[in-house]
Structures are given as C-alpha cells and as structure tokens.
Amino acid sequence: MRGIVKSLATTMSTFIRGPVTRGYPSKHRELPERDRAFPLLLWDKDIDEPFCTGCHACERACPVECMTVLMKDNPSHESQDGNSKRRKIVDEFWIDYGRCMRCNICVEVCNFEAIAMNNTWSGHETSVYDRSDLVMDLPQLMAQSKSDEIQEWVAD
C-alpha cells in the first residue's frame, strides 16, 4: 500500500511538472544542422548550374542503389563560350526516396560537394499517395538549394 501511494505521488509530481510533448504538426522542433533527411542536389549560384558533374560516384557507393545518374557535355563550358569550368554536367538524376536508407555515404563520396542531406522539416514530411511520387527527378532535387531553403552541412 505504501508503494502504491508512492506511485500515486510520482504521477502527481509529473502532473504538476506539466507536458513535455509538442503539438507536432502545428509546432515543429528546431532541427540540428546535421539532421539527415534525404539527399538533395546543390546549385552553384555563381554560374547558375548544378555542382554535380554526373560522375556516378554516389550511384556506385549507394548501398541500396536508389540513384540513377546520366551525364552530358556541359553546354556552358568555357570551350562552348560559357563561363563554367565543368566539362561534363549532370543531365538527369533520379533518387528513389522510397529506397534511400539515409546513410550519408553519397555525401561522403562526392568529390564536388554537389550532394547534401536535407536538414529541414521538408525532408521529413514527404508523404505521398503513390510510391512512384517518391522518385525525385533533377528539378525536384534542385529546387530547395536554388531557393536557398537549406543550409547544407557537410562533414569535413
């Protein structure tokens, strides 16, 4: 009986301490900068083109093979009277978010710092009605970096 009274006192103490949960969909917790949601491609604002050269490094390193990359000659390369130093550039890029296991390996192997993990809430709230909608193409992967929505964090 004394133990039961002690239990009652414990719950009463938490009753007084007040809630520790948040009203999630309306209130968001601030995410740490290292938060890993899903990979995104980054946009080089100086030249207005993606950092990605389509080198397939991430595609090869991906443990779940969720990426598909196609490469092309860069139309705005210096030799073509452009201002870019990238001879090759990404043509198409798909990431299947449904397969991705968010291991961060693609970010580590990238030689151009062209890919980063989404560290905003938009990366976590990606529910869709159809699985095929989870396959992201190049414009979708670029959108957030173009509009400055993410501050990417890359391990040194």
């Binding site: 009463m12 938490t14 009753f15 301490r17 007040g18 809630p19 949960t21 948040r22 009203g23």
Partner: peptide, 11 residues
Amino acid sequence: LARFQQRLGPT
C-alpha cells in the same frame, strides 16, 4: 491522463 503522463492529450 495525458497530464499525468506529461502529454498534451487531445488538442
């Protein structure tokens, strides 16, 4: 109950 469990309960 939510308050005892430091939750918000229905909101």
